[in-house]
Design a protein around this nucleic acid. Sequence first.
DNA 1: TAGTTTAAACTAATTAATTAGTTATATTTA
DNA 2: TAAATATAACTAATTAATTAGTTTAAACTA
Lengths: 122, 122
Amino acid sequence: MKQLTKAEEDIMQILWDLEEANVASIIEKLPKPKPAYNTVSTIVRILESKDFVDYRKEGRGHVYFPKVKKTEYSNQSLNKLMDGYFQGSFKSMVSFFMKKNDISIQEMETIMKEINSEKPRK
Amino acid sequence: MKQLTKAEEDIMQILWDLEEANVASIIEKLPKPKPAYNTVSTIVRILESKDFVDYRKEGRGHVYFPKVKKTEYSNQSLNKLMDGYFQGSFKSMVSFFMKKNDISIQEMETIMKEINSEKPRK
DNA sequence: TAGTTTAAACTAATTAATTAGTTATATTTA
DNA sequence: TAAATATAACTAATTAATTAGTTTAAACTA
């Protein structure tokens, strides 16, 4: 799976959020200095060529939707970070994060319990 | 703190690893199609302008070293990922990772114990 | 059906990132 | 001290990413 550039990622985030959208709806969601219609349209077509997005015809236009799930992409990103900065070790990454954010073992235990109750153990 | 581009990150990784190096030593560490001396030199100077790197004179050349700690940068990257893909929630991120990588609560408890023994609770 | 509108497709322009050639400077060595 | 060498600094070229103008096609409307 390819990497997303900054502009591409911004638009993917919107598509993941909306689930599907035409170019106009994407622009609506973009912040203040809104890019031109064609700018967004071009990026969407790049996302299409990178196989991140597909579309269906609807009325006179196209409705675009993600072809790659957000979780698939975030998983790749997390793994990349883990490989590059934590010697590929999840333990190192969690340990690091806990130190940096002052999360105690106790708090972590609580978090684990919450996760446990969401998703019953197999 | 600014973001690193791909080429910049590759060189920062080497500097973080070596702790300090001149351009020649950086090139030594770079993989197969080794870039030209000047390519590396330019990127190092960009890193300097981005305040990621500093240097001291040594003999006839410069010895470069990181000004930003690897942990500082990875912390930023992890936070960025957490904000963009896990609604800023560490719990969501850990939970997600456990599911994706089939880590059970039991395994996680073991990891927690290991972290606990490395770093006695405060 | 002719004109108007809307959006995609195509293409060009701009900006950012990467790579590398050339020049200048300092140090070593003969 | 003059030549050779090594390296930084500067600058140019190339490639990738982003932005936006122009063209084309479809479909709606009068």
